[in-house]
């Protein structure tokens, strides 16, 4: 929990500096996923990250979606898992599945 709040602290600082910011949150996990439900990743409009939503395997793809969310303001629901071609592409080889919600901080 303290992790999540450290993420929100950084997100708050970015926001106060006038940056565009998005937050990605793990909302469902199946099997062995590296980070529990509630884990968060903050992203600013320059692609800087704070926190994590996996052991590092899907962050790249999540950041890309977060940058799009900052631009268009729309929330996104992302699925990653071993059965998913895209997940293999981004390297979620840990055997679990995760669903990540990405939203802009308004």
């Amino acid at each position: 929990m303290s992790d999540a709040l450290e993420v929100l602290d950084q997100v708050g600082r970015w926001k106060a500096d006038g940056k565009g910011v998005a937050v990605a949150t793990v909302i469902v996990t199946w099997g062995s996923s590296p980070r529990p439900v509630g884990s968060q990743l903050g992203v600013d409009d320059a692609g800087n990250m704070v926190g994590s939503v996996s052991g590092g395997c899907i962050e790249g793809a999540v950041v890309k979606e977060a940058l799009d969310a900052i631009k268009d303001g729309k929330p996104r629901l992302l699925d990653f898992g071993v059965t998913d071609e895209q997940a293999w592409d981004v390297g979620l080889a840990c055997g679990g599945k995760v669903q990540v919600f990405v939203e802009k901080v308004n």
Partner: peptide
């Protein structure tokens, strides 16, 4: 997430007040 929501979460932590943030995934309400 609204900026006020972020501030409220930080305030709750400082006061050791438990809080849950409910978010509707279709529209982020």
């Amino acid at each position: 997430m609204k900026a006020e929501t972020l501030a409220a979460l930080q305030d709750a932590r400082a006061k050791r007040r438990a809080v849950a943030l409910a978010t509707r995934l279709s529209d982020a309400a």
